[in-house]
């Protein structure tokens, strides 16, 4: 990943994407690549948002339906659906989204805090809001999207 420079405070880059018809964006540093949809292998006992695992050049990575994960229902099959491969804290996963649109640069003051974050019921997946032209982009916290650790034996 690129090293941070002094420009860090001023500008951050995000990739904007669409899931459930809504605009989201993800820190570009967490994104490894973007791939088209390929069939996955189902995992038993997984949460509904985990579609399964796929083979990424020899690595086994879980694919999470972003829309379902955010409680917006399963993503319908679509030809434009893509998988965004992200890596956070040494874990790699794929996010199924409806579309990926562009790379945006915003200064850090332009990222507004999520005003609903203090509300108990609101999941903390959205850590900020960016106004982009007439749209609002939700900044996603990828760490919170990782499939929960399945270590629930006994």
């Amino acid at each position: 990943m690129t090293e941070t420079t002094s420009a860090k405070e001023s500008l951050s880059e995000f990739v904007s994407l669409t899931a459930g018809g809504q605009g989201f964006c993800v820190d570009i540093h967490t994104i490894r690549e973007i791939r088209s949809w390929t069939p996955v292998t189902m995992l038993p006992f997984s949460e509904p948002a985990v579609l399964g695992v796929m083979n990424l050049r020899g690595a086994v990575i879980p694919i999470v339906d972003l829309r379902e994960r955010l409680g917006l229902g399963p993503t319908p099959e679509g030809r434009r659906n893509v998988i965004v491969i992200v890596t956070v804290s040494n874990r790699t996963m794929g996010l199924l989204v409806e579309a990926v649109s562009e790379i945006i640069s915003v200064s850090s003051d332009a990222i507004l805090p999520n005003p609903t974050q203090s509300v108990e019921t609101q999941p903390a997946h959205i850590v900020g809001l960016i106004s982009q032209e007439d749209r609002m982009l939700r900044v996603l916290d990828i760490t919170g999207l990782l499939p929960a650790d399945r270590e629930d034996a006994a």
Partner: peptide, 11 residues
């Protein structure tokens, strides 16, 4: 191939 690195243990 381990599943635990990227996903977690599955019963």
């Amino acid at each position: 191939k381990s599943l635990e690195g990227n996903y977690g243990a599955i019963p």
